[in-house]
Design a protein around this nucleic acid. Sequence first.
RNA 1: GCCGGUGUAGCUCAGUGGUAGAGCACUCGAUUCGUAAUCGAGCGGUCGUGCGUUCAAAUCGCAUCACCGGCUCCA
Length: 572
Amino acid sequence: MPCLSIAMSSALPRPVASTPLVALPSSTDALQRIRHTCAHILAMAVQRLFPEARVTIGPWTDTGFFYDFDCPTPFVAEDLKRIATEMRRIIRADLPIIQETVERESLKAELERLNEPYKLEILDRIPPGEPVTRYFIGSPDVGRTQHPEAEPSLIEPLPIAPQESWWDLCAGPHLSRTGEIHPKAFALESVAGAYWRGDETQAQLQRISGTAWETPEQLQAYLTQQEEARRRDHRKLGKALKLFSIEEAAGGGLVFWHPKGARIRRVIEDYWRQAHTDAGYELLFTPHMANLELWKTSGHFDFYREGMFEAIAVEEQAYQLKPMNCPFHVLTYQHDLHSYREFPLRWAELGTVYRYERSGTLHGLMRVRGFTQDDAHVFCLPDQVTAEILGVLNLTERILSDFGFHDYEVNLSTRPEPSVGSDEIWDLATQALMNALQIKGWQYQTDEGGGAFYGPKIDLKIRDAIGRLWQCSTIQVDFNLPERFQMQYVAADGSRQRPIMIHRAIFGSLERFFGILIENYAGLFPLWLAPVQVKLLPVGESQHDYSSQVVQQLKQLGFRAELDVSAIAWVK
RNA sequence: GCCGGUGUAGCUCAGUGGUAGAGCACUCGAUUCGUAAUCGAGCGGUCGUGCGUUCAAAUCGCAUCACCGGCUCCA
């Protein structure tokens, strides 16, 4: 298709972000202090307005801060406005913030008096011998002001008295006065549920989140960036551009690709197949379900059962909708006896898998229950691992850069506890991953103990047009499946040996990657991906027939062309 | 799954107990008008679903489904 190569020429203009984005400072010490202090001011404001609220934790985050409260009355959107107003009063009062190292027992008594059970729990967990500090907003001389219990709705913000004081058990650091925060450089963003200690069996708390910056300009830039992210939301664009839908009648997390979205998917898939054939892969197709025994053998049933759908009864046998493709590739491998001479075997499949995701976690194309992995497995010898991983890195780079992603963050995850396999083989695999990264010349961070139980891995996060990171590609060395399935090959000396298996995906999930593409390009796809590449607009009925002919010719040349007759209404 | 919110026309939304609305889109007609939004008419909804309260329910109650913001989870 000659026209396709024209369409893919890099000389063609690429869509750029329509809104120039202001560079925001990353998390500096000054910002951390601002945000941490904001969290305290938030908690003070909440307890002034809702004396029945109990405080828990309130850290800084990448863009701001949050504080979790245990409060019997649910906070609503209007409350956030009142709380923010109250926070500004505390800021404008320019109260001093004073650190104090305290004696454990007296603090404990005081927390008991204040009825702050969560803080007591935190205090109890501070290792003995470690100093315990608290931070006052206002003067420490008066202790913490207690506000009378009252109906929250009846409480008017009280004037901040000069002797007003509030404190929180906290390691810091903080600013030295509330007035160091610009009253127009923070904003409360949302209230949402959260669990005490992030554990769903523990008390359900209410989390108030906010954002805070050094200057109002930075806040504005951040809010503009948020606005830009909302504008690019793939759920919104997907609907507007008629790319895909999720049908309530069918169920959550199941994606319907409409004609225009399906055109893009086909371009992506065709490209992917070609790239993989070029890189020495064979393509497989495997079923969507299989006997549950297979998943017991693979270990998925034991380790990841909660992510699998319930089994389906088939004539007294239990069948399982596949949550992963790997066991199928292993079965394909085992159908024949393999020689070391065949290695490396590279088998790829666009395999659709189904995983049970809890209803509250579904999110457009980003988190679904049925999705297509661009999965592949490489079976090879120990001394081929480095070269194979390097090959995967090269292919990954080629593919991602063709989709406009040139900036990655790379993570190497090493052996966790517990895990399977000998130290020797872990060292070999980890070293192979590191060698490949070194030859490739990629900077990476090491996540000690972050690997899968069956082997170490490399993860790639791509940076999109507005600076967000998305984890897509993953390369994993696996010792578990070859062992569990007792995979073999015939070595040069005629003995039977265990092959090494590498799992890898470049897009990860085709659905999710499509969502990322929509957001990255803000719906303005480059020509080679665009669902409509050429649109003809005849201005009069007399040109209609000729225009149709031209559209037909363009289509025959491989262009995605359309006739737009809406202009014809003008001239009859 | 949990907490809070939302669900009304293809889209964006108004309508809090008394005969379902607007703008855009779409269809038809008029208008030859130079960068999205000319004028008129028309089409279009069992108000997410079910049960209940009531003389009367989009509106109140219960249940349920989906979506949104988070939590949790993510092989």
